[in-house]
Amino acid sequence: MVSIIPNVKEKTRKQYTGVSRGTRIMKNLTLILPVMVLTLMVICAIFANLSWLGLPQYGLAPHDPNKTAPRDKFLPPAFIEGGKSDYLLGTDKLGRDILSRVIHGARVSLSVSLLAIFITAGVGTMLGIFSGYVGGRVDGFLMRIVDVALSFPGLLLAMLLAVAVGPGFWTVVFALSVLGWAFYARLVRGESLRIRQSDFVAQARVNGASPFRIMLRHIFPNVVNSLIVLMTLQVGMMILSEAALSYIGIGITAPQASWGSMVSDGRAELDRAWWISTFPGVAIGLVVMSGNFLGDWIRDKLDPRLRQV
């Protein structure tokens, strides 16, 4: 086997690094597509209509999502025989435009999950850093709470909440947050524990830095990487959870549109009007997948060991 000593001139760098054209394009696609999907969804959520400018009649959604039109009910999508070009993705059993409802649903579904992510990440990070830094009994105690939170059936808690305070936007946010922080707390606590033992923290203590300063200036910036990765991956989790809650009827209430409640609405009509559930379902799938791809990509980018070559 002489090929181990190839002729340097004939070979290009890419052939040496062993990364073929195909894999590089695939690698880039797994970044570009998720970013495009997520950007599109965010634009939909913001510009569904311009009610926040006092102009509810303008926006991306072609129709009012809640306006019923009994004459146009169960219309199939425009590209299928019997569809109307006015209703691109068809209508539901009350004649509401599916496209408009998916666009408006993005607003509800994304804001619920982003809010929940920021609350859980914030609380979890603070508790995690504190627990890891202080250690000892405080740490033991906090981590047992985390264990309980992680083993508690989330759906049951959400149902209890829905019964107690009634379903709605804030109930969903609360239900998603009340247990979700534990993931962050556990992850960040581990990192914090590791960083606390590092030389530069010892050095900061020698310099007389206060515990608060050490946690803020030395530990926090070093857990941000893992935090961002987890948050991105959680986008998908949260959207799915919101969908699940709305699907079983304890989440976002009618007539407000969220993707989960739309899937739920179309459940009974699946045999004759498959489009009612399918399009919001596709939206959920796209966002979840994009979140996961993006999370993986960010993790690879932030990990110096994977950054080389």
């Binding site: 590092s198 030389d199 530069f200 050095q203 200036r217 910036p221 070093n222 941000v224």
Partner: peptide, 8 residues
Amino acid sequence: WSSMNPRM
């Protein structure tokens, strides 16, 4: 290599 905060 470890005595300095890499983020500062």
